[in-house]
Design a binder for these strands. Structure first.
Lengths: 195, 195
DNA sequence: CATTAGTTGTATCGCTCCGATACATCGAGA
DNA sequence: TCTCGATGTATCGGAGCGATACAACTAATG
């Protein structure tokens, strides 16, 4: 099975509901994933081309001299999933590969949870959790050793990073608990975890 | 004034105390900035070469056939700041350019706070804070609009992202407050902000 | 004593990504 | 009308990353 990078996966995901233009893809993806992880045209268009080349998506360009005779409409290219693309997405959604809990992949996988079955959701959440646990230990140990080599600001940076990871683990615990108690539920959990 | 990218700044910072090998730079930088922001050799060595070319650092290679005659010691290259490099670092530390509060730059700038004067520290912290405030508003508004287009998981992702930013703002507020009350202090603040 | 495994160490290749930029059309409001 | 902002496609140069190769020192394990 050919491997699918994050961007490709995200595009497959957003195209499954409706065909979109490049511009719309960028905008929608930006809205879904937040202002973090901006997606630039410099990566979007090459990726779209790659996907067309490998047959995952196809273009449905609006031909210039069509309905209205005199209007030379601007080139607008709508991308839609091919059968192969839909298959690939399904495969990818069902298989929670180890990379699913990587920092940059997890967000996209999570955004696609509505299209993922409960067992896979759970596996991904737990994988991510254990990944963060490792990091937690790693950082705390580094922090302990840091007391020897002074510099309060560097230590504070580590401390804050540690806290951030701890928060994310708590968040995951909430989600996991809810997933276990309501495997079929559409809702990710109690409306608010903290605050 | 030539612009200095993040990686260059980080290397300047870590070399100011003692000369180091490429390997040690990577390791130390990794320890200071945490397991996030890994630094790969694929970017480190090219950057070191760039810095040598522009005269910011210089190499002090240990010559092979030196002290012990028969031992052909392995090539080990120690990098140290030149006068130009030290000047550049000082300039950069004094001027809190607008890019100082970018996501990927702020960490490095913060790690160098021990070598930064209080006024600049404050300006950077406040710049970062206002940057995050903008983002806060941006995300909250996106979240409000998100209720119209269902998908609980996508919304939850945004909600969690929002919370993370809120946390960071609180953290910054702590640091700013402390910086104001003790401008000369070595300590970033009360040992623990939350928990 | 020999083999193995892990750490220190330098370096490159291919690919992807990003920021900036260019160009063009359309709708709304000054 | 004229301008501004949104929509839309596209590329270029540079920088980053992951993987990988090579090499020597060092500790433990058999």
């Amino acid at each position: 099975m050919a491997k699918t990078d994050v961007l490709t996966l995200a595009i497959l995901g957003i195209l499954q509901d409706q065909p979109l233009h490049g511009y719309q893809i960028r905008k929608l993806l930006g809205a879904e994933l937040g202002p973090f992880r901006a997606l630039s045209y410099g990566s979007l268009y090459p990726c779209l081309r790659r996907m067309v080349d490998t047959g995952l998506i196809e273009t449905a360009g609006e031909e210039p001299g069509a309905a209205t005779p005199a209007s030379s409409r601007r080139a607008r290219i709508a991308y839609s999933l091919t059968e192969a693309g839909r298959t690939r997405l399904t495969e990818e959604l069902a298989s929670a590969g180890a990379s699913s809990w990587d920092d940059d992949t997890f967000d996209v996988r999570f955004a696609l949870f509505a299209h993922t079955d409960s067992a896979t959701r759970l596996r991904i959440l737990e994988g991510r959790r254990s990944r963060l646990s490792e990091r937690l230990e790693e950082v705390s140990e580094g922090l302990k050793r840091m007391h020897e080599r002074h510099d309060a600001y560097t230590a504070e940076l580590q401390r804050h990073g540690l806290e951030r990871v701890e928060r994310e683990v708590e968040w995951l615990d909430q989600l996991i608990e809810n997933e276990r108690s309501a495997p079929g539920g559409d809702n990710p959990g109690p409306a608010s975890a903290g605050h």
